[in-house]
Design a protein around this nucleic acid. Structure first.
Lengths: 219, 219
DNA sequence: CGACTACTTGAAAAGAGTCAATTCACGTGG
DNA sequence: CCACGTGAATTGACTCTTTTCAAGTAGTCG
């Protein structure tokens, strides 16, 4: 046991828990995907892994009627594309113009260990996200999302001046990530603005005025 | 592409996609856990994996105020305990009296491949479950849960006579798995009974009368 | 038989979704 | 340079689902 209390709430796994700088793919060629273009689809043959060189990727599942659940957004450094079987169970496409390096899992032992660790991080993120979606109300989910984005942009906790968060994705993407509607996401952001917890610089950019208030919402 | 349409809805990964009969742990000693007893806690040192010999295990995360999100139920044959880092991020305990074999990840290449595959199956399940919780209403979630349980008990689709499903876990467990309250779970089951989609044999046992109706609810 | 826990049911309240109407930002063409 | 058109985001009014709170019932174990 590292933790005194079994009730301790763990913060979501920070994406930078995983330093992937030493992955061999870093030297490989970068393929560019324009915003909205498909990287792979459900049903495609699995196997290839990708590392984000720049841009943002969304990984999601679809229901027959078009409802979508985004499982994760992947940003610079992230590795994604892990699958259990021979076929993809999810879709992946570029949110913004995105550069990807491909990784072909080799038999190299160290690399495998590293990839295994990264895959387990994906699992950890999925569990965190499940908690967010399953056990928070709309405000809590949006707050959790903003904290995650801040974490990934390294701006979390910056009390001094620029606590700017950039949202590369649309409200629809955010809603589909959080299991909400775009209207609800929009309303929550407006309420957070009115409560002086956020300042909405533009629709895709905002400042956090009170981190503690955001964290309280995810309680 | 194996699939014609990118909009095809994939059924949740069946747990028996993964035949784990050849895992070496199958010959190891079985440790018994009584109902409700802890297998590991958040913060514990990670590393050990477990395979269920008999019984049921729940893996979950807790919030500070006691809210709980069950990530998965593990049944006979399932392997669980995968973690990204040195410490556990989730709790695991026995739902019923449960027997577990421990697996210590070795350097054995084939075993590692197999474990990697099982870990990725956990990831796949997490994604499926996220879709269920994020994009279905109460009835849809309960239906998805029942279909999952039926799948795991091999009773899915048995039109003939015994389409019996056993629920080893309490309503509270089901609610915490689906992100609902126990009252809502109970009400949905009652409605499904009144709609002659289910027959409630007892509070922990039921028969499915119309599989198609259940599947429609998860649409 | 009585006490405890799990489950069910009901009524009221809160939260999120739906539908519809603007507003806003941005790129195009006159 | 400005008017226009397009798609994204916001806002409002209303509906409906789910939660909450409060009883009540059923099963189980001593």
């Amino acid at each position: 046991m590292f933790d005194a209390s079994p009730l301790t709430q763990a913060r979501p796994l920070s994406p930078r828990d995983g330093d992937v700088a030493h992955l061999p793919a870093l030297n490989g060629p970068v393929a560019t995907f324009s915003a909205g273009s498909e990287i792979y689809a459900q049903g495609d043959r699995a196997g290839t892994l990708y590392q984000v060189a720049f841009g943002v990727v969304r990984v999601y599942r679809l229901l027959a009627d078009g409802r979508r659940q985004i499982c994760a957004f992947h940003m610079v450094g992230d590795v994604f594309g892990f699958e259990a079987g021979i076929a993809r169970h999810v879709f992946a496409d570029a949110v913004t113009t995105t550069g990807l390096r491909t990784i072909r899992p080799s038999s190299d032992a160290d690399l495998s260990r590293e990839l295994y660790r990264l895959a387990m991080q994906s699992l950890g993120h999925a569990h965190d996200h499940l908690l967010t979606v399953g056990r928070n109300d709309a405000a809590g989910r949006v707050a959790a999302f903003l904290l995650e984005m801040a974490d990934r942009q390294g701006t979390h906790g910056e009390q001094t001046g620029r606590a700017q968060i950039n949202l590369p994705m649309s409200r629809t993407d955010i809603a589909d990530y959080l299991g909400l509607t775009i209207e609800t996401v929009s309303r929550v952001l407006t309420r957070l603005k009115e409560a002086r917890i956020l300042r909405l610089t533009s629709s895709r950019e905002l400042q956090v005025l009170r981190w503690d208030a955001l964290e309280d919402l995810t309680a």
